[in-house]
Design a protein around this nucleic acid. Structure first.
Lengths: 339, 339
DNA sequence: ATGAAAGCGCTAACAA
DNA sequence: TTGTTAGCGCTTTCAT
């Protein structure tokens, strides 16, 4: 492994000059530059990054905290984050928190030990005050979360508008009796989503019936359960927001078994635009999340924070979901553009 | 940011002693040890990892090269790899090659610049000779690939046995006319798989009809196409291996539209055990890959290579796929255990 | 059991 | 335009 010193010797110059060539500094004559480059070539020289990190006090690495990589949404997010980081010349260290407070803290320590220049959190487990204390060591950017009392850049989806949009769509399709599935997670986003949903209803004098609110559904099995419950009801909903494409799949599966027509007897709206949404029959109208936009913004903001060094700046970067209209809410013959 | 020097001063000791405490060296009296620990506590001292890396010539980081993170299989693999790395005290840098030779080389450079202690490749694009040249800088372990002329540890699936198992299962179900979908990727593994498939057939005097071999099917749409072709055939297959659950989904969707009974008119075997395999109707019999086992082994081997420093050792770590038996090849009433 | 000092490879302030 | 030198923070001989 050759060092800058070796290159300097071979080129008959000083380490400084070599370093200057390496960093594209001005004030190096073309002649010497050539000499240095030849020497580098000949030795197969590559700068040692630990030495650079130590000297420059920055690593070129960003940590991404994620609860579970193999979750469809998070793997998409990570995918884009990696591309954007790569574009900016950064490496990404992946940190799976597995929804554990301790793991989350362990990974935040990467900031303390200066192993990374910044941390992007796509979820969080600890109290905000705990996380806040790490800000003295470097920038933290929230991507896909919103916290009222955090004074840092936050990139997130306006869930109130998401909820509103869903309800509005169903209202336009003529539904008046709707059901709503939550996923059991209690967060500001989830609260905002249902609030938005309800406000669209109340605008037209409707409301969400208590029995039609399912508190905790996140899996295919949960979806089947939800339908079983619906089947037993006196007054049945004509439309349901499922909170997840998996739940939608469960509901659809049972509904078909029970010979319900979809969307005739029940219109279904999913969430996440997972692969299955397009594969089911009927194809599922679902909420499409602005994954790419959020990841891009998060990385841009992180880059800026790393360089301007003012970590505690409150920035709200809000993005909107879209609705992919498909057969589960609109009869095929009325569907102009499916996507 | 406090350094080891600060701690030493506060404790009234030397840097050496502090370092010894930090690294659990013997020959430190309990008394001084306590002193040092108190000082560390008081200053909130955390060792700087760049300095450690520089001094120790190792980073505690492993790079994982992956073509595309958001692919179901790779995200699962990455998930397990991260857990295993974490167990061993390593961080993972993720490198998305996007099937690009150049990107792959760029990321292999992390080894040259000593930014990582080793590289795990889950796929590769360049000629083996290119990759081989990086071995002088550190260990490379193949996880999910097999290359005949690579002299490094390889963790992979025995695809010949996978193919054999699939055909065997269909033979046992009484099929004699089978179709086979490849995904268009040309690799030793893919060749082995079809070879294994064919040899099970030839054992009982059967063979794979040329027209029933689909060269390139990897998406849901491809699956629909495949079925359309089958529909036009004179002699139709009674069973098909799809090479992917997505393709299986496409085939099933079209088959149902054409009012085929599944598995009565056509038995379908998928690959990958994706989420959809259990959600479709019928639930899809599919090949389950030993993701966890491969990831675990790859990380174990990497750990060992990093420490014993002999990188060019040919090691074949072979794993087997399993078949998850479901309704698409076995009538529900005959299904004892679905999974 | 403890400390002094050298040095990992690089960059930058300063001098020439 | 180029070189000398100090030092980033840590570990490890070697001496005591």
């Amino acid at each position: 492994m050759s060092t800058i010193e070796d290159v300097a010797k071979l080129a008959g110059l000083s380490r400084t000059t070599v370093s200057r060539v390496l960093n594209d500094h001005p004030y190096v004559s073309d002649e010497k530059k050539k000499l240095v480059q030849q020497a580098m070539e000949q030795l197969g020289f590559v700068p040692n990054s630990a030495a650079r990190s130590l000297r420059n006090q920055k690593t070129g690495i960003i940590a991404v905290l994620i609860p579970k990589i193999s979750t469809s949404f998070f793997s998409q997010l990570l995918d884009v984050l990696e591309m954007k980081a790569s574009d900016k010349g950064y490496q990404l260290i992946i940190c799976q928190t597995q929804y554990s407070k301790q793991k989350e803290k362990n990974y935040l320590n990467l900031l303390k030990t200066r192993q990374v220049d910044g941390v992007i959190m796509t979820s969080f487990e600890n109290e905000w005050s705990v996380i806040d204390s790490y800000l003295q060591y470097g920038p933290i950017v929230l991507c896909n979360e919103y916290v009222e009392d955090a004074h840092i850049p936050m990139v997130y989806i306006n869930q109130a508008k998401t909820g509103y949009m869903i309800a509005k769509h169903l209202l336009e399709r003529g539904h008046t009796q709707m059901a709503y599935c939550s996923n059991g997670i209690v967060s500001e986003g989830m609260a905002a989503r249902i609030h938005g949903f309800k406000s669209a209803l109340s605008e037209v004098g409707l409301y969400l019936h208590e029995k039609l609110y399912f508190e905790k559904a996140s899996t295919y099995e949960d979806g089947k359960n939800v339908f079983a419950q619906i089947l037993k009801m006196q007054v049945k909903p004509t439309a349901i927001f499922t909170g997840s494409d998996l739940v939608a799949a469960g509901i659809i599966s049972e509904a078909r078994t029970a010979d319900w027509r979809l969307p005739g007897d029940l219109a279904v709206v999913g969430y996440d635009n997972m692969e299955i949404a397009k594969l089911l029959e009927p194809m599922v109208t679902t909420v499409v999340l602005p994954v790419e936009e959020m990841a891009t913004k998060a990385m841009d903001v992180m880059y800026e924070k790393i360089h301007n060094k003012h970590y505690r700046s409150l920035e709200k970067h809000e993005f909107l979901s879209k609705l992919a209209l498909r057969e589960s809410t609109i009869y095929r013959r009325n569907l102009v553009a499916t996507s």
